[in-house]
Design a protein around this nucleic acid. Structure first.
Lengths: 214, 214
DNA sequence: AGAAAACTAGACTGTCCAGTATGATTTCGG
DNA sequence: CCGAAATCATACTGGACAGTCTAGTTTTCT
């Protein structure tokens, strides 16, 4: 399981091809809109092989959803590290972080995955709930830790509940652009100037509560 | 069109029954999962009548989505009025507003509609985009106006961009509970104590930037 | 090499569903 | 009360698709 990516046998290779293809198909068409024939074709594999690897469509879906966290988690961890760890100026660091978050989370495939999970939240409550806990919530807890780290360097004041503070930062920065991206389709893009205003203002509000200089 | 709800003829009555039934079916099963037979059965109407009133499934969907804003808009307007208009204490007023927002927006049918719109954002970009502009964005602009009204009564300081401030308030209050409600299925409910902490802290952060007393 | 396991192409089953057609019945305006 | 329009129940068409089956081919392991 840990070494899923390291397997090189024919079976493992084909399994991975199926996962890649299925991810593409599910993200593009949704659960009901996805066809197993298309998955097989896109994976360059026969339908039998798909059903040998994954009992049925539901299992394949679960596998895809739960397997698609890693990239984003790594990406976000990098964003935290690069923007916060060496920082000396709180405002600049938080601004940079805000942009990295916006960039990471409005990437097309991230939005599509989130749409998929939301759409199927009632059909697959366990899978979607697990995705949320292990992906979404975990990312914000990690962000909380990263923010708490700024306290140690005198850039923020003491935080009682770093996770809550992380949600507040995320909410200030992303509530508007994220909702637009989710609701208004992948096509609509905000003008760059707007993201600047949002990030600037969010950081100002954030620092007026949590900045080290009162 | 304006008087759709006032029509009493047989045709108009049946048309409304179809809309009600279709709303239920689409919200429950999603676009692809919804069946026109179920809509007809639930409306107590023959399939022919459905197709006489609505050209096809797509049109029915569009009609449903675009017709489902009014209740929530009215609800939110009431929330703004009741919590802000007579207020004398900014903290108390904003706390009350926060709870009203959470209550209104985590209602089951609201969540289901939002899931539906998000899920179909790529399939029906015009319809979902229109829903977003006329429903979501409009609500936040209205909230901005309501908040700006607090400035006049000395409860908040001057707001350069009331809409942006409204998004920040909404983000502070709802980013966490709304995401959980959207992703983790309708079943998961936060403990009441958590909403208290979120609302309290959000209002504190908000006021430390926008409160009239510095 | 040779047997076992994996894979392939393609046909097939059963089901579901959007949308149409039909012929009988009900409603309603004049 | 009569005729037009609306509605009803029901059956049908055509297509999509999940999942199975078969018979032949390729890979892998020993």
């Amino acid at each position: 399981m840990i070494s899923a990516m390291e397997q090189t046998g024919r079976t493992a290779t084909k399994r991975r091809a199926i996962q890649v293809a299925a991810t593409e198909v599910f993200l593009q068409h949704g659960y009901l809109g996805a066809s197993m024939d298309e998955v097989a074709a896109k994976a360059g594999v026969s339908k039998q092989t798909v059903y040998k690897q994954f009992e049925n469509k539901e299992r394949l879906f679960a596998d895809i959803v739960l397997g698609t966290n890693d990239q984003l988690a790594v990406n976000l961890a990098a964003a935290y590290a690069e923007t916060l760890e060496g920082a000396t100026d709180a405002r600049e660091a938080l601004r940079a972080l805000a942009f990295r978050l916006l960039e990471s989370l409005t990437a097309d495939h991230v939005l599509q995955l989130r749409r998929l999970v939301i759409a199927e939240a009632d059909r697959f409550p366990e899978v979607c709930g697990a995705w949320f806990t292990r992906g979404f919530e975990k990312s914000l807890e990690t962000l909380g830790q990263a923010l708490a780290g700024l306290t140690g360097r005198g850039l923020l004041r003491e935080l009682d509940d770093p996770t809550l503070v992380a949600y507040q930062f995320a909410g200030l920065v992303m509530y508007k652009p994220m909702n637009r991206a989710m609701f208004a389709g992948t096509r609509v893009r905000p003008e760059p100037g707007e993201l600047d205003r949002i990030a600037d203002s969010a950081v100002t509000v954030f620092l007026s509560s949590y900045g080290a200089d009162r």
